[in-house]
Simulated assay, not measured.
Amino acid sequence: MKKWNLIIDVEKCENCNNCFLSTKDEHVGNDFPGYAAPQPLHGHEWIHIERKVRGSGHMVDAAYCVQTCNHCDNAPCVKAGRGAVTKRNDGIVIIDPEKARGRRDIVSSCPYGAIWWNDQLQLPQKWIFDAHLLDAGWREPRCVQSCPTGVFRSLKISDDEMADIAKREQLEVLRSELGTRPRVYYRNLWRFSKWFIGGSVIGDSPDEIRCLEGATVALRKNGKNIATASTDVYGDFKFDNLDPVPTKYQIKVTHKDYKSMEFDALVDSDENCFIGDIRLSV
């Protein structure tokens, strides 16, 4: 059986919020019986974007992670809903706008914080994958259509096909340790979840001080080489996609015109991974 899935590419998101706005445009003031009651104008973010800033000094980057209902196959909200929340055969999770009225407990059942409480209607609400549009023949949800940078890709395929794509494209899900089996997958999630270590190599001689292009930087852990980089025209190097745990690395910097340098570097948080200037002498 074919089921809906959504792939979100963190690398492509520029925080334009078109996905958020298109969902608001679709649901604010619009009642879709059997699918969803009207979304409030303010307060609800059925699709929201979280920002992650990494680094310091001149080596800083920002990543944006779109988050929403994951339409989990093992959804806690379905269990908590006791008939008020259902999982459709096509994989979409729906909170019944009548049966769920007054059920504020459903909001706290979601470990991702993707369910919102409508005070006026006394109703838990979330993004419904625009199921009302898909059932009417649309090929994709509005958030997919409205994105100018191609962040989203919606697929209605079998679970085996989706598993093959996830493996081949190295897709991840949010908080896999929860065992909820989300149907929303992420590409390049490391931009949001992993750490980096970087720095700038400077050549220091009696004649000049300059950024060193083409220096070789080796990253080691427990004495074993795990990655190698070459500095750019500004003397910068960067090792990314590192496990987000405090780790002591060894860094060795070499250049044909300067003395080599080797030192330890402790990476203990994603806010403290730029080690600054490394000066090589002649």
Rank of each mutant, 00 (worst) to 15 (best):
263 F>A: 11
208 E>W: 14
256 K>H: 13
244 P>L: 01
255 H>Q: 02
268 D>I: 02
259 K>N: 09
224 K>R: 11
210 R>A: 15
273 C>L: 06
243 D>Y: 07
228 T>Q: 02
259 K>D: 08
258 Y>I: 13
243 D>H: 08
224 K>T: 12
209 I>E: 15
241 N>C: 13
261 M>P: 07
246 P>G: 07
234 Y>F: 15
229 A>T: 02
222 N>K: 15
258 Y>K: 10
220 R>Q: 07
251 I>A: 05
242 L>W: 01
236 D>I: 13
264 D>H: 04
233 V>I: 14
247 T>W: 10
231 T>D: 03
266 L>F: 01
213 E>M: 14
241 N>V: 06
263 F>Q: 11
220 R>W: 04
222 N>F: 14
231 T>E: 01
238 K>N: 08
211 C>E: 13
237 F>A: 07
206 P>W: 15
246 P>M: 06
214 G>L: 02
254 T>A: 03
207 D>Y: 13
270 D>T: 06
263 F>K: 12
217 V>P: 07
247 T>F: 10
233 V>E: 15
254 T>W: 02
228 T>D: 05
267 V>L: 10
271 E>S: 05
221 K>A: 05
235 G>C: 03
250 Q>S: 12
256 K>P: 06
220 R>D: 01
216 T>N: 09
213 E>Q: 14
222 N>M: 12
262 E>R: 07
248 K>W: 07
259 K>M: 06
231 T>P: 06
234 Y>S: 11
262 E>N: 09
217 V>F: 04
254 T>H: 06
233 V>S: 12
214 G>W: 07
218 A>V: 01
273 C>T: 08
253 V>E: 01
212 L>V: 15
271 E>D: 00
243 D>M: 08
225 N>K: 13
211 C>G: 13
269 S>P: 00
215 A>S: 13
270 D>W: 06
228 T>V: 08
267 V>F: 03
231 T>Q: 04
265 A>S: 08
256 K>N: 11
207 D>C: 11
244 P>S: 00
240 D>L: 06
262 E>K: 09
207 D>Q: 13
269 S>W: 00
236 D>A: 11
227 A>P: 00
228 T>F: 00
247 T>I: 09
223 G>P: 04
212 L>E: 13
211 C>H: 15
215 A>C: 13
241 N>R: 15
206 P>V: 15
267 V>P: 01
241 N>A: 12
255 H>G: 04
241 N>S: 11
249 Y>E: 04
257 D>R: 12
235 G>V: 03
236 D>E: 12
267 V>D: 03
215 A>F: 10
264 D>M: 07
234 Y>A: 11
206 P>E: 15
262 E>I: 09
236 D>L: 11
224 K>Y: 10
212 L>F: 10
270 D>E: 00
212 L>S: 11
210 R>G: 14
262 E>V: 09
246 P>H: 07
206 P>H: 15
242 L>H: 04
206 P>D: 14
271 E>Y: 02
